[in-house]
Nucleic acid binder design. Structure first.
Lengths: 226, 226, 226, 226
DNA sequence: CATGAATGAGTATTCATTCAT
DNA sequence: AATGAATGAATACTCATTCAT
């Protein structure tokens, strides 16, 4: 799996050649508007015509860039994967695992803060009503993450940091579940409220993010330590 | 819990009086079809007219039961909450905590198996595009769960089962994150694939649910033990 | 008038026998609500179901009183004719004509003030979209008025008050045109604005009704005097 | 008048830019069908879908020309105002006033004959149920007319044609009331019957329009003469 | 390549009327 | 006689997509 990333499963492309010839500024503007619309209204709730108007792109042009609404959506969803890949690339899976997870938690928070809309689009794509869409993505969006967890955890077990006999898959699953919903808490109104409810915060109470992140990492450390 | 449910937070009603006068068979049929449609297509992807036809109910009748599509959807979402409340009511928060969590994990699996559609509707309601809908629910759907975790964990800390100084809110958050996405894995195609990816299962591989549940409970036990 | 009314053209009835057996209070309430709704929203803009609810009458009952929405509307329109007949009955066509017309103008004002809704319903019935409705009324709503004008003008010409050779029909037409639109000015927002525009009144200006009525009567007097 | 039309009070526009780009033939056809439908059935009684079909325009196209049914209706009502403005522009308010009024009466008859539907739409717009529509028109539809009367009457009083001390507003109101309902008599079934009733014409009797117009002008002349 | 006018099936919702109770 | 649940055609309007210019 180590090299498999480069090989077969390159991220699929949902746009036309014409799209690649766009000026970068126009392209960024279009993708940015699309992201905003899909994030705010969901796939079904977004009007392609309104989106095109807001982006200053004619409908005809938009359809010359993307064969369909679905393809534009999938392109936008794919942007999230790219950013995630970059984020993971910064991390060294060879470092002490709990440092890695702590970085991951912090990065997740920062990423969700900086790109809440990507999280919202991801959440929407996750929905059963859009299963025919997410199935067009080559494999799950999580392939990268899973791969990363596996390598980091395996190395840490090897080094004796984490307990032997650990079920790597299940552990990664638990760690990522915690992380994913924590991440959503910074993007989605619903999951923000949920986190605050768990933390016992009322309407006005301030969220101590550092404390939450520390608690999460501590929870994970105890669960995994040798 | 016995009384606290009955007290203040009565679930809001989104249906008319006429709905309550329906014959139970017709009512069940209608709700069941509605659940199925919303689960399969999402709120925005579901056509009220098609739904009515499938349920064998005239459009006019449907609108005499629910003021709007939104209200029908919220009624369906509310059904999930009721079932959840029943499930939690079976559990004794006074038992050893890890037994309670193990039961919870198993119940979540059973519930998701039995009512995958409720999970799918919940996931849809969670979506940012439907925030105006979920905000009509009195408080989060999770209020019950949070409440339950708090009481069970507090009692366990009291008994010395779980470590003192535990951040109850954060711990409950972690435990529920693990549980929620595990639960989704039995309802949503997307999250099923994600779980299998984490477990390293290919297309044909069989999922050993018991092993996963055991691993999850073990993960939690180590994280929390005194 | 004394006999001709009773003979052929009795006002047609649009209600059922059941309607006549209603308690007077309920009947008044129903007619009053119906008048209000039709006046405010027009025939096509009024919902029979909403009307019944507001009147505290079940839909079934309402349909036992009136065969259709049309018949209820025509009944309401007929109420206006009855009130008009009463008003005319108070006048003595043998008095000096200009006194009669002055009384008529004043009565029209008072009537429109007291029953603006009847005027609005009349206006609606007048509309081409409802011609199949107004044609169901036996003859025009104006039969009474025309009859009254003829007798009063003829008598006045006879007495030498008004000029010989007067075209009675055309004169009555002119007099009634002035009167009718003046009357509407007290019921309809549109015609109120129109009158004020003619009088040069801005937003805040107060309307001197007495002066207007005097001017109207003076206009008529000069037009008709011997 | 020559310039005053061009100046301040531009008629509000209720259509989109796209509408202005239509081919003139298609545009005329659409407006003509819309006028016919609204005239025949009233605003509330007209179906936009049926209208579009009759006009040979797709529903989508129609909604690209007008934001809503209301806007199409107001456009049609506005056509009447334009034609009225043209008609008034032909008249010279400096001529002997009774000649002017005679011309006005004749023009009103001709206009109502040629464009009965515009009168019917005007009548519908006048209805209380559509007050929210007529209030969207900038000022009353009558502004032009009032203005014209004022100037013509004032000039005639100045010239000594009409009596000093005349209440210009009230006189104009009376004159226009007579004219307006006379005009309606050529468009509306209801008001046609009413006129015939006043003139004592039975089913078959022929209406001597010239005599009526002469009588109306004579009525007015006597009412106003110096 | 770009434009945006055009399409028309599809949407949620209303409402006059019927009829079983 | 009274009720009000049920009906379903009809309504105004939307929107993904096509295609002539």
């Amino acid at each position: 799996m180590s090299t498999s990333n480069d090989s077969g499963d390159a991220a699929p492309r949902f746009h036309t050649d014409t799209f690649e010839k766009m000026g970068p500024a126009r392209r960024e503007a279009l993708l940015s508007v699309a992201l905003g619309e899909f994030a705010a209204n969901g796939f079904n709730g977004t009007s392609i015509n309104a989106l095109a108007r807001k982006a200053g792109v004619s409908i005809g042009a938009l359809y010359s860039y993307f064969p369909s609404k679905e393809d534009l959506f999938l392109t936008v969803v794919g942007m999230g994967r790219s950013l995630l890949a970059e984020a993971l690339a910064d991390l060294d899976p060879g470092e002490p695992f709990m440092d890695v997870y702590a970085s991951l938690v912090r990065k997740a928070r920062d990423y969700a803060r900086a790109n809440p809309e990507l999280n919202l689009v991801y959440l929407d794509a996750t929905t059963q009503g859009l299963r025919h869409l997410s199935s067009r993505l080559s494999g799950s969006l999580e392939t990268l993450t899973v791969d990363f967890y596996y390598r980091a955890i395996a190395a840490a077990v090897e080094r004796g940091e984490l307990r032997r006999g650990l079920d790597v898959g299940a552990a990664a699953f638990c760690l990522d579940n915690i992380l994913l919903l924590f991440q959503f808490s910074f993007a989605s109104d619903y999951f923000r409220d949920r986190l605050r409810l768990f933390l016992g915060l009322g309407e006005g109470g301030a969220l101590d993010e550092e404390a939450v992140m520390a608690a999460i990492v501590d929870f994970a450390r105890r669960a995994l330590r040798a």
